[in-house]
Structure formats: structure tokens, C-alpha cells
């Protein structure tokens, strides 16, 4: 009876342990081993030392994908925060129909990225897309939303903001509700205007939420895949190749398993490093 009681907890957690060893621990170790090898799965593995790492730093597409991710994040993060904060502030005014608006902003969040991408590909279309029809309607010239290498990644960042911002509106709303009402009352007594209240009270109080949005968006930026896969295939001129799209191409298009694993390991390190730096900032703030 006593031994049964002792074994029982381990029985209950055993599925986790099996899953962890098989799908987390082994893959992490094996992925490090793979980085020192050349392998197409079919032929035997070939030891190549640091070749994959040397190749990584000389690979123009890899460097391009880093730059693309940076462009994405530079557009996506501020836009996301500004739009989400703006709409959360309005929704926080205890208006009627608040639930309906909130529901509308949240719609793109629950829909598959595949749907959103196919839809926006049409909206961004050069000849008959809605955006260019609007532009020509007011007498401006057409924009190559997805065909101009300088613009395509920005277009994807704007679409991603549209898709995700509903979630961040909700997170900011939760954050805004933690700000004690007395703070605003005290500010009112001292005659503070709306902007002063926003910058002196609201913003400092919801700082943790902002950092969370930054971290989640950063992880999202490095996970970007289906958007460029469907819209542009990484083009024009590799201007929309994302981290995951490049791993996918190396791994499942060229079957360069060793090199794809090297890319995966490197991107994972960068994500962890960026997130840790951002976390340090938060701790410093408090």
C-alpha cells in the first residue's frame, strides 16, 4: 500500500517525462550534434566540424533574414503598442457597446494566419487590391505593397499588427484596470489634463504590460512563417525571408539538416538573449 502510494505520483507524471525526453531533451541535444554535421537524412551523417557555423556567418540570405526580422520588429512593436494602447484607453471609458467593439477587434486574433494572409494578399494586390484602388481613387499612384523589396516586409508587419493587436488591447485593458482610481482623482484635484494623466500615471503603471507586449512580439517576429510563405515566398529579392521560413527552406526544401539545425540553434539563442535583455530592463525599472 505504501509503495503504491509512493509510485503513484510518478505514474501520473510519467507521460510528461516520456514526452520531455523524446520531444524536448533529445531534440535539443541532437540539434547541437547536427550543427557539426552534414546530413540529408538518407545518406550517412558526415562530420564537418565548424563548417556550418562558418557558413552561417558568410550566408547572405541568413544575414538578410536577420535584417528582415529587425525591420519587422521595428515597425511591428511600436505600431502594436500605440494602436493597442489607444484603443484600450478608449474602451476603458466604460462606454456602451464596449463588448461589441472589443469582440470586433478580437476577431482577427482567433482566425488562422492562413486566412488573414490570403485575405491581405488580395488587399495588397497591385492592380485590383483595395489599398491601391483607394490610392488611385484619391489621385495617388499605386504602391507595390508586396512587390517592392523596400516595402514588402513593412506590409507584412502592418498585417501582423492588424492580426494580433486585439489580444494586446485586452492585455492593456487588464493593465489599465489595475491603476487605482484615486491616482486619477488626485491628479484631477491638481488640475492635470488628459495627456499629463496619461504620461504621468497610466504609462508608468502599465509598464509591465508594455514589456510583455514587446517580449511576445519579439518571439512572434522570430516565429514569422506562414505570412511570407503564402504572400511572397520570401521575395522580392529575399526581402521577406524570415527566420523560420529560412530554416524551413534549408531543412525541407534542400534537406540540409545540419545547416537548418545550426540556423535553428542560432535563432533560438538570439530569441533567448533578446528576451533576457528585455527582462533585465523590467527588473531595473522596478
Amino acid at each position: 500500500m505504501i509503495t503504491r502510494k509512493k509510485i503513484l505520483p510518478y505514474l501520473l507524471v510519467s507521460p510528461y517525462i516520456v514526452h520531455f525526453l523524446l520531444f524536448v531533451a533529445f531534440p535539443v541535444v541532437f540539434s547541437i550534434v547536427l550543427t557539426f554535421h552534414k546530413w540529408n537524412i538518407i545518406a550517412p551523417m558526415e562530420y564537418t566540424g565548424l563548417n556550418n557555423y562558418v557558413r552561417l556567418f558568410n550566408d547572405k540570405t541568413f544575414i538578410k533574414s536577420m535584417g528582415n526580422t529587425l525591420i519587422f520588429l521595428v515597425i511591428h512593436i511600436p505600431l502594436q503598442i500605440i494602436v493597442a494602447l489607444f484603443l484600450a484607453e478608449i474602451l476603458n471609458q466604460k462606454l456602451k457597446l464596449r463588448g461589441v467593439f472589443r469582440g470586433a477587434f478580437f476577431l482577427p486574433v482567433i482566425v488562422s494566419g492562413v486566412v488573414v494572409t490570403i485575405l491581405w494578399q488580395q488587399l495588397y494586390g497591385f492592380d485590383t487590391g483595395l489599398f491601391n484602388r483607394l490610392l488611385t481613387g484619391v489621385g495617388l499612384s499605386k504602391v507595390g505593397w508586396l512587390t517592392d523589396p523596400g516595402i514588402a516586409m513593412i506590409s507584412i508587419a502592418v498585417m501582423a499588427t492588424w492580426k494580433n493587436v486585439g489580444l494586446y488591447i485586452i492585455l492593456f485593458l487588464v493593465g489599465l484596470q489595475t491603476v487605482p482610481a484615486q491616482y486619477y482623482e488626485a491628479a484631477d484635484l491638481e488640475g492635470a489634463n488628459h495627456w499629463q494623466k496619461f504620461f504621468k500615471i497610466t504609462l508608468p503603471m502599465i509598464n509591465p504590460t508594455i514589456f510583455m507586449v514587446v517580449i511576445l512580439s519579439t518571439i512572434g517576429g522570430f516565429s514569422l512563417f506562414i505570412e511570407p510563405y503564402i504572400m511572397t515566398g520570401g521575395g522580392p529579392l529575399n526581402s521577406t525571408v524570415s527566420a523560420v521560413l529560412y530554416i524551413y527552406k534549408q531543412g525541407f526544401f534542400y534537406y540540409h539538416m545540419g545547416y537548418a539545425a545550426t540556423l535553428g540553434l542560432f535563432f533560438a539563442f538570439i530569441i533567448l538573449a533578446v528576451v533576457m535583455i528585455q527582462k533585465k530592463f523590467i527588473e531595473k525599472d522596478h
Binding site: P27, S31, F222, S223, M257
Partner: peptide
């Protein structure tokens, strides 16, 4: 743990 590291294995 970022999924990018475990995808290939």
C-alpha cells in the same frame, strides 16, 4: 525554449 531549436530534430 524557442521551438526553432527543436523543429529539425
Amino acid at each position: 525554449l524557442p521551438f526553432q531549436i527543436t523543429l529539425i530534430p
